[in-house]
Design a protein around this nucleic acid. Structure first.
Lengths: 208, 208
DNA sequence: GAACCGATATATCGAGCCGATATGTCGAGA
DNA sequence: TCTCGACATATCGGCTCGATATATCGGTTC
């Protein structure tokens, strides 16, 4: 499941592990945190599978990522200005011992397989959020299929929750009842949201 | 995290592993699925820690296996109810090789510790749902503390999502933007729900 | 200028959880 | 009879996590 995120990010830009982790937690931190303990093994797996490839080690890679940091030569003062500039625009300063990864042709193939695979894990929600974050790489009809499959899953989950709530209401205490109720409402909201996504898709409003 | 659920169920009734799994997936299946691959090791851990205890093996199981347990289980499944009905209608003859577990005094202690522990895992949501399903065993003021701690976490998450959405909007495509938006709305709804739970708690409407 | 701190960067470890699978019993039905 | 599905326990490999180890670099502090 992490592979999908890694490949999705590498599809856009070559990155090293640390930066990869920062982008993952920045963009999707609310939904899923990523730890180094899973990131680095995942990168190793992908490399072993030929899906990614180390393109740079120990070098600042002058070609694309680093836009030639000017490095003002003044010695005294303006530490505040320097700090502000560093905080505002930070183009990934080069450092020693980093491994920059790039996606391979095989990796592109794996990426698409992962995007369309039925989530093997029981954690459907996280998987769908991840897929949504990268579904722009899918052709429109497959994207639509992804949305509708997700919608069907949510409808089924809602139905199960409703029958469960009806048949077990007497046995459940108020807290569990409230939990199930709220879960059902959340699922309803998810379905409505998916409906809006599907409608947008049918209209043809496909973004970049 | 599974320990909490196991102890919570065993607090109400002595059960064997298979039945334990069925009740878990029946009642909380919408939120978290439980597999044997985690259930049996968890039971072994709990037994090693002295939190549970095997009370019956090779159960002869006459009419009433559990002595003086009034079956007030609030967490029970539709299928479990069906089985109970069928068992009442026909004389149950199961079964060989099953291990019925009971909670110990030490287990009760562990249960309360788990209920109040800050979730060590990154999976806060599942953990809170589980805690809510068993929080009736907590004294009211601790229950309130649990709710308010959860509320604070959600507020923080919402704030982070909002700033993230503001600062990274340009980088994100429409799908990811929609995902973050919907996540924020869901979190808002969660906070409102928690507010209603807190209000109910302050009013003193403590159930069973 | 030395000593320290935080950010950068890679990597491993133990433990928990999951899906899949193995093993075996039992009752119902083809 | 013999197979099929439910019951029941248990293990295996794999993935993810939090914690931890290691090391460099820039900036702050004394």
């Amino acid at each position: 499941m992490l592979e999908l995120a890694i490949l999705g990010l590498l599809k856009e830009q070559e990155l090293h592990g640390y930066e990869l982790k920062k982008r993952l937690t920045d963009a999707l931190g609310a939904f899923s945190s990523v730890s180094f303990g899973s990131l680095y093994p995942a990168l190793a797996r992908l490399e072993a599978a030929g899906a990614v490839q180390v393109v740079t080690t120990q070098a600042p890679a002058p070609a694309l990522p680093a836009p030639a940091v000017p490095m003002t030569g003044s010695i005294a003062g303006e530490a505040a200005a320097f700090r502000a500039r560093r905080a505002a625009a930070r183009p990934t300063r080069p450092s020693r011992t980093r491994k920059v990864y790039a996606i391979t042709a095989r990796g592109e193939q794996v990426f698409e397989e992962l995007l369309e695979a039925d989530s093997t894990s029981g954690d459907d929600d996280r998987a769908f959020n991840l897929k949504l974050a990268f579904c722009r790489h899918l052709p429109p009809e497959r994207r639509l299929g992804l949305f509708e499959k997700r919608r069907a899953l949510l409808v089924e989950r809602l139905a199960k929750a409703r029958t469960s709530h009806r048949t077990l209401k007497e046995r459940m205490d108020l807290y569990t009842q409230s939990l199930v109720d709220h879960g059902a409402e959340t699922t309803e909201a998810d379905i409505s949201w998916l409906d809006s996504l599907i409608a947008l898709e049918r209209k043809g409003g496909t973004p970049s």
